[in-house]
Design a protein around this nucleic acid. Structure first.
Lengths: 196, 196
DNA sequence: GTCTATATATAGATAGAC
DNA sequence: GTCTATCTATATATAGAC
């Protein structure tokens, strides 16, 4: 037998993209963030790149494939953050590392994150996407410290929702990234310091 | 001059709805929550009620008018909560009353709230809707206690995002409403008790 | 990899009868 | 208040040339 690479189904597939595919993904990510998936047409994506619809369809057979490609790129970042955090033992230290990485990630892309996270099309897609569900398990394990009681889960869910949602909140739109990031860190730590 | 009712532009218009209009609004609210505004067609709304598209268009001239009607109904609840909270002086007590009312509101409609709040079409609409912006000012004034510093605003925004987002979070989907509500209250109070 | 051209379905919206 | 029928624009998607 030849050297066949074993595929690790517990991890996101890392498909190599052509330059043309990368252009589609980048334009789609921006438009999905601003208009939602349903509010973004193939024509809008094509116009943003400066090609025709047919050229986009040459790269991805369907619109859904574009959505999946966008999500795989996006979730790759989250997977990396989890890999780093898991080098620490499960516990407050791993949680702190993870939250710092996640906060960096959402602040850096604050114009896009919130809308994407709640888009009904994306929510539906991810709910049946096995590698994503495994990522969420890893994320929540660190966030709750393994505690599966109602209190720990509500706390984890609220902090997760807070971090994902705050970056586009009207109350903080005029804050610069650095201020927002540091205040988010400070407040998050304060919460854990007290409720642990 | 006759008895002309003065219109209070600082409050939401309370337009009396016919039964047919109420049916449209109710079906639209449900569908917007599940598919987003862009993902919901007039045909879907008509099918949900059991009439034709033309019948829906007889009640509302455009799709946007339906969205606005849905939001006015929805925000009416928020306005009532603010009216109640503002009978207390601005301060921790008003904040506590407001948060309890808002938590009740989002838990009661947990399947819908989160998607609606982040829908790009709705966000755009509300950003130029004066009565809504005034509601947000009142909400944030109570939430921050009038403190306009970065720390207070990030805290207010995170708590606001946490409450709006937690109710549909995967970590808590299996919790019943009562447990979720009481844990949300407990955690929210704990945060304020420590960070005030 | 990108183009023109086209097929097919469905979107939002209106006219006019009952 | 609801219907049938229809208009126009745009959606996803494909065929085939360069």
């Amino acid at each position: 037998m030849g050297a066949v690479e074993a595929v690790d189904v517990t991890r996101l597939p890392s498909v190599p993209r052509s330059a043309a595919q990368a252009r589609v993904i980048s334009a789609a990510l921006d438009l999905f963030g601003r208009h939602g998936v349903s509010g973004t047409s193939l024509q809008m994506i094509a116009d943003a790149i400066g090609v025709t619809k047919a050229a986009v369809y040459h790269q991805f057979k369907t619109k859904e494939e574009i959505v999946i490609a966008v999500l795989e790129d996006d979730l790759g970042e989250l997977e990396s953050a989890l890999d780093v955090a898991e080098t620490e033992d499960v516990g407050p230290r791993a949680r702190e590392v993870l939250l710092d990485l996640v906060i960096d990630r959402v602040v850096h892309r604050r114009r896009i994150v919130s809308a994407l996270q709640h888009d009904p099309v994306i929510v539906r897609l991810l709910a049946k996407h096995e590698p994503f569900l495994l990522l969420m398990d890893r994320l929540f394990a660190i966030l709750t410290g393994g505690d599966t009681g109602a209190a720990a889960r509500v706390r984890g869910a609220m902090i997760s929702a807070a971090i994902g949602g705050v970056v586009t909140h009207p109350l903080v739109v005029d804050l610069d990234d650095e201020t927002l990031r540091s205040e988010m860190r400070r407040f998050t730590r304060q919460i854990f310091a007290v409720t642990d």
